[in-house]
Design a protein around this nucleic acid. Structure first.
Length: 256
DNA sequence: ATGGTCGGCAACCGA
């Protein structure tokens, strides 16, 4: 089973490229973020014609998450139970005997912004959500654009960028609490190399060539699932060709 | 050089 996560920055613009990439990489389950489309305009037919079931929750202009998979979905939940308005940032689905949680964590804008407080609260609510709904022995995949670099090797200049909203002690501390609850970072289980990024800011000239990147996209698994993981890697083609997204996909392979 | 460029959507906001 091949699982992937990709922040598409508009699923409608990325549609032809995405369909091509899905088939060439034999992806069974793709978690998508920043679809930037209302549900009534989601291009579900195009994916269905290629054998993928679509689960999605979006809104006008911003955010939006989707799960495209070769499996029939069981129970679905959108957003946190107590805050369904966060639907365009969190989808939980029962797929192939696994629970998949696809998240698009708030970016945070600036540390003095109310949106940064929202990001910190959001990560706290996510931990409460996992604790309330699952046992750490359950087969759970937590996938998505987490808008944070976990370790110093996950960002191009850890000294200078420490304190940035995506690499801030208050943020990484909250992530580690979620990890401690019961998640394994599948990429780091298979690869300890530095400079392995999934995001390059396209406002910086030649960011990919200059290795000015961040690892912001993750596939996390509870221990029982992580033990079945045979590989996890970042897509070879940075930014997927001529119409770039800031992000590139991350892929995990599981023996199930 | 706190810049730069995308995408949505129709003026700027978010990243």
């Amino acid at each position: 089973m091949k699982i992937a996560s990709y922040n598409v920055n508009s699923i409608r613009v990325r549609l032809p490229l995405l369909l091509d990439w899905l088939s060439k990489n034999h992806i069974d389950l793709l978690c998508v973020q920043e679809t930037k489309v209302q549900d009534k305009d989601f291009p579900a037919e195009a994916f269905e014609q290629n054998g993928y079931n679509c689960i999605f929750k979006g809104q006008k202009s911003y955010n939006g998450v989707a799960i495209l998979s070769r499996y029939q979905a069981g129970q679905l939940h959108f957003g946190f139970e107590d805050e369904p308005t966060d639907g365009p940032r969190l989808i939980r689905a029962q797929l192939n005997a696994i629970t998949v949680v696809n998240t698009y964590v708030p970016q945070g804008v600036a540390t003095d912004s109310e949106k940064f407080r929202y990001k910190l609260r959001w990560l706290e609510r996510l931990l409460a959500f996992f604790k309330k709904n699952f046992d750490k022995k359950d087969p759970v995949l937590w996938v998505g654009d987490l808008n944070l670099a976990r370790l110093p090797i996950d960002v191009y200049d850890p000294e200078r960028l420490s304190g940035h909203v995506c690499y801030h002690p208050e943020v990484t501390r909250r992530l580690e609490k979620i990890m401690q609850w019961g998640f394994v970072d599948l990429f780091r289980q298979h690869c300890t190399e530095p400079r392995q990024y999934t995001f390059w800011d396209y406002r910086l000239p030649n960011a990919v060539k200059r290795h000015l990147g961040w690892r912001l996209d993750y596939i996390m698994a509870t221990k029982s699932l992580a033990d079945k993981s045979t590989n996890c890697y970042i897509d070879k083609q940075p930014r997927l060709a001529d119409r770039p997204s800031d992000h590139t996909p991350i892929i995990a392979e599981l023996k199930i």
